[in-house]
Nucleic acid binder design. Structure first.
Lengths: 107, 107
DNA sequence: TCATTACATAGCCAATTGGGTATGAGACAT
DNA sequence: ATGTCTCATACCCAATTGGCTATGTAATGA
């Protein structure tokens, strides 16, 4: 029901956007042209996707001269984690063996 | 890049589908009519969404007479957890790098 | 000053998506 | 045997989405 939750899930649903976010996680702050290289789409499309990721709180931007550096906001992933944890929680009430999932989440 | 990962993210992007999955997590195996109550959409639409969730491995179904019971498949959440963990991991790595860098600069 | 570079926005279009109604196929009850 | 109930599929439609090109604006460099 949460507005933010919906924005996060929706933003990460597109593979191009997920790819952009992944690259920002891997390599830190990057300019649009920097991201353009392996994005597989045109520059305006990259800008549009970044705008959507920003609206979902998944990235931040910083202007330096004519460059705009984008970076991942990993705190936003908490939305995903919280939801998954909640779903797993409902399960814990229902089943006894959650080991595999819980072990993964422990890491 | 993973086919399954893409299906999972895409399936959970829609609020109606997420709602269905949530209810299955909360209340265990349920029939289509059972889910129909609070879904806010017509029965065929519920069936269609369940089909998409099933294709993503997020739910399973079991036939009993004229009823079809759907249930959440917990293993599928591992896809989400793994991805999130990986993204968080890159963060950790970069943090370590930064730490390392700062230590070098201290000398 | 003028060209170039970095980026965002606007406008366009085809494909996908999420919803609907109509209908068919089994299972069950009367 | 017939009607009802559960569910899935087929088909249709409007809205959204994801891509493109063209263009504008600001910063930089020659």
């Amino acid at each position: 029901m949460s507005e933010l939750q919906d924005a996060v899930f929706r933003a990460l649903a597109d593979p191009t956007r997920r790819g952009l976010f992944e690259r920002l996680c891997r390599q830190g702050d990057t300019t649009v042209v920097g991201l353009l290289a392996d994005a597989g789409v045109s520059q305006p499309v990259v800008s549009k996707h970044l705008k959507i990721l920003k609206a979902a709180g998944l990235v931040h931007d910083r202007h330096e001269g004519r460059y705009t550096y984008y970076g991942a906001r990993r705190e936003a992933l908490a939305t995903l984690v919280d939801w998954t944890t909640e779903m797993a929680g409902f399960w814990q009430d229902r089943f006894d063996d959650l080991d595999d999932l819980l072990k993964r989440m422990d890491q």
